[in-house]
């Protein structure tokens, strides 16, 4: 019997929560490819602060917690929660009203046809 799609989704969400809420603290803190190139070649100074830079969540850290692990972990969890609402909400709206098999192409009805 096939595992329910909701098990796949549950596992995926759990991995995302652990990654953003816990593992992100251990991620490399070195500048990423673009930032490094901009630093090495002298155009990092052309960067301006984002209009959002004053948010208490700017830079994937919750301001004023005084604990880096907690700060980055909570920011990650917050991001995952926001993404759950926005991501699932958007795609629910787009897929709404179509039962499985009605969509032009669907992985799931392929499986039904294929047995």
């Amino acid at each position: 019997m096939r595992r329910s799609i909701w098990i796949v989704i549950g596992v995926g969400l759990a991995v995302a929560l652990v990654a953003a809420g816990f593992l992100s603290y251990y991620a490399s803190s070195a500048p990423d490819g673009l930032e490094k190139v901009a630093e090495d070649h002298g155009f990092i100074d052309t960067a301006q602060d984002s209009a959002m830079a004053s948010l208490p969540t700017a830079g994937y850290a919750i301001e004023g917690l005084g604990n880096d692990r907690l700060s980055s972990g909570l920011a990650g969890v917050l991001g995952v929660l926001v993404m759950i609402v926005v991501g699932f909400g958007l795609f629910w709206l787009l897929g709404r009203g179509r039962r499985s098999g009605q969509a032009g192409v669907s992985a799931d009805d392929h499986a039904q046809v294929g047995g």
Partner: peptide
């Protein structure tokens, strides 16, 4: 809209969440 249905839409939502989380892991 043409591709998604009530069963595949949650998967797309999951992919969005997953990519967000993985992008934090430099």
């Amino acid at each position: 809209r043409r591709q998604l249905d009530e069963k595949t839409a949650p998967l797309a939502g999951l992919v969005a969440v997953f990519v967000f989380a993985m992008q934090m892991l430099n």
